[in-house]
């Protein structure tokens, strides 16, 4: 074996030796579980519409139900098992967002309700919120500069 003298040769050696994630299997599981979650959402949406709610209200009901189910499954210690299997399939839909807030809230409950649950609840979801909201402000400003006409129309 060649001596691994520089950081770069060592990094290459590590990359070669480290086991890779089973990408095909992960993608397949993420695809069908993610699709299933979205289909459940669509079924709820259609039921709501049939019962006479408008599209926007129906969408809100879907979000509330999916968040509620994901939070409940997190509490039952089941969501992490689904997540381990499905990866991005359960993490990317709104279920993953619910899980990312409920899981630290559960874990840090032992440190008290204020400093524990309150203080640590957004440790995982925090970056998503910060950059999500920042991005929306940025996009809003760009929209304001280049598309003032349509804003007056709205």
């Amino acid at each position: 074996m060649d001596p691994l003298e520089t950081k770069q040769t060592y990094q290459e050696y590590v990359d070669k030796k480290s086991p890779n994630s089973p990408i095909l299997k992960n993608c397949f599981n993420a695809f069908w579980v993610g699709g299933l979650i979205c289909s459940i959402g669509q079924v709820i949406l259609n039921i709501c519409k049939e019962r006479g709610f408008d599209t926007q209200t129906s969408g809100t009901i879907v979000s509330i139900l999916l968040i509620g189910i994901a939070a409940f499954l997190t509490g039952l210690n089941l969501f992490n098992k689904i997540g381990k299997f499905a990866g991005a399939g359960s993490l990317i839909p709104i279920t993953g967002f619910a899980n990312s807030i409920v899981s630290p809230a559960m874990e840090y409950k032992s440190e008290g309700y204020v400093m524990g649950v309150g203080g640590k609840m957004f440790t995982v979801a925090g970056p998503v919120l910060v950059f999500g909201i920042s991005a929306s402000i940025l996009v809003g400003i760009i929209y304001l500069i280049f598309n003032t006409q349509s804003i007056t129309l709205v």
């Binding site: 480290s18 992490n80 381990k84 899981s103 995982v124």
Partner: peptide
């Protein structure tokens, strides 16, 4: 895990390494 990584209830995947 709680101190250094993620909550155990978080539905993420660990890499094989």
């Amino acid at each position: 895990e709680k101190q250094f990584r993620f909550p155990l209830e978080l539905g993420n995947q660990r890499p094989p390494s």
